[in-house]
């Protein structure tokens, strides 16, 4: 584990020509960058390409990196933005949960146990806005601080907190609807 001072020193060495040292940073943050991209695009191959492009972009703009910030947060922001624009280019626009009618498949078993609930929560997650879904997913990853997540998503920390609360509220409401629907179809 290297400190931020050591990391800045490493960046200085990379900038002064020791480019192979960039592999240290890639190894250190690749899983986080990949996870962020994966949460956004939900496709392993695309997430890997986006994360790789993010690292390449970060390398190309390393001179512009402001050392008052953490390299990781700056990198995650690049990856996050790339993933969001990739998703926008390749997917249909977001429809909020209020506007979308959710079709629930018939279930053979009547007991809505944990796995079933998990299944329905995942379905409901797809109906949240990208921003709300990501906010809640990154929050529950518990790998990034709220400040880091807010910075990554380019949002104010209070907005992020509101998003996380709102997303959980909506998911709870959605789950309630599903349970009611299941009870009626028994």
């Amino acid at each position: 584990m290297i400190t931020f001072k050591e990391e800045y020193a490493l960046i200085d060495r990379i900038l002064s020509g020791e480019e192979s040292l960039y592999a240290v940073l890639v190894n250190r943050y690749k899983s986080y960058a990949y996870t962020i991209a994966l949460k956004v695009v939900q496709n392993k191959v695309e997430a890997e390409e986006i994360a790789q492009d993010g690292f390449i972009k970060a390398f190309q703009y390393l001179k512009k990196f402001n050392k008052e910030a953490k390299f990781s947060t700056w990198l995650y922001r690049i990856v996050f933005n790339a993933a969001i624009s990739h998703k926008r280019k390749n997917k249909q626009p977001f429809e909020s949960v209020e506007n979308k009618r959710v079709e629930y498949p018939e279930r053979i078993d009547n007991n809505l146990e944990r796995e079933d609930k998990k299944y329905f929560v995942n379905r409901a997650m797809e109906k949240l806005s990208d921003a709300d879904r990501l906010a809640v997913q990154l929050y529950y990853l518990k790998e990034f601080t709220l400040e880091e997540t807010a910075e990554m998503m380019g949002q104010n920390i209070n907005t992020l907190k509101v998003r996380v609360h709102r997303a959980r509220q909506r998911l709870a409401d959605e789950l309630k609807k599903i349970l009611k629907h299941e009870a009626l179809t028994l």
């Binding site: 960039y22 592999a23 890639v26 190894n27 690749k30 899983s31 986080y32 990949y34 996870t35 994966l38 997430a47 890997e48 994360a51 790789q52 690292f55 390449i56 390398f59 990853l141 518990k142 790998e143």
Partner: peptide
């Protein structure tokens, strides 16, 4: 939690 990319990720970058 955190997911891991393929083994040759760093090499590709």
């Amino acid at each position: 939690g955190i997911e891991h990319p393929s083994a040759n990720f760093t090499e590709k970058v």
